[in-house]
Computed example of a mutant assay.
Amino acid sequence: MSTTFTDPVVAIPPSVGIFWGVPDGRRTVLVTDRTPLAVAETYGDCLTHPHGHYEIWETWRALGATELRRRGMPAAIAGHEYEELPRGRVVYMRTPALFTLYADRHLQRPEAITELVRLFGLDGERHLVRSDVHYRTLG
């Protein structure tokens, strides 16, 4: 399930997935691809999203700038490689029963974390934010 903007009135179930911070004019917009925890894939002792950053990004890029805008997504996606922009992943650790947001340091600002918590339905859920070598912006 791909999302860019979520209606604040609609309840989002706790989810895992991937995300980026994408330039959109003078601001950065968080775009996500997420899976509700109830149908997430098992990966060791974790529950995770079944798709990778490259796979999803290339699907979006193939849409082109016009179609991305039509879908409410930033057109900048069409002009960047997936690793050029800050990104991250949300996974659920079954032991100790908490969500971990692995995020590029550029996305570890309080306002971005608050928005990620909302976009992944983690309000009221135990979660922590961590850095990881996989989620460092190149460039």
Rank of each mutant, 00 (worst) to 15 (best):
W60L: 15
Y102S: 07
T66D: 15
Y82E: 12
M73T: 09
R71S: 04
L63H: 11
S131I: 05
Q108S: 10
R89W: 00
L30E: 04
A76D: 15
W57G: 09
L107T: 04
V129E: 02
R118W: 04
V22Q: 05
F99Q: 07
H106P: 02
L37S: 07
E111P: 10
E81P: 02
T32G: 06
V117P: 07
H49S: 12
G21W: 03
V16I: 07
A75D: 09
G17D: 02
E81S: 15
P86M: 01
V31W: 00
E111C: 07
A112M: 12
D33T: 03
E84K: 10
E84L: 09
T95A: 14
I18A: 00
G44I: 03
H51V: 11
D132T: 03
G79C: 09
L85G: 07
R126Q: 12
R89E: 15
D45E: 12
E115R: 13
G17K: 04
R126W: 05
L30T: 11
T66E: 14
V117C: 06
E83Y: 15
A103E: 02
T42R: 15
L63V: 02
V22W: 01
H51G: 09
S131Y: 02
V91F: 04
R27V: 14
S131R: 14
P23C: 07
R27F: 08
H49D: 08
H127Y: 15
F19N: 04
H49Y: 13
P50H: 09
L119G: 06
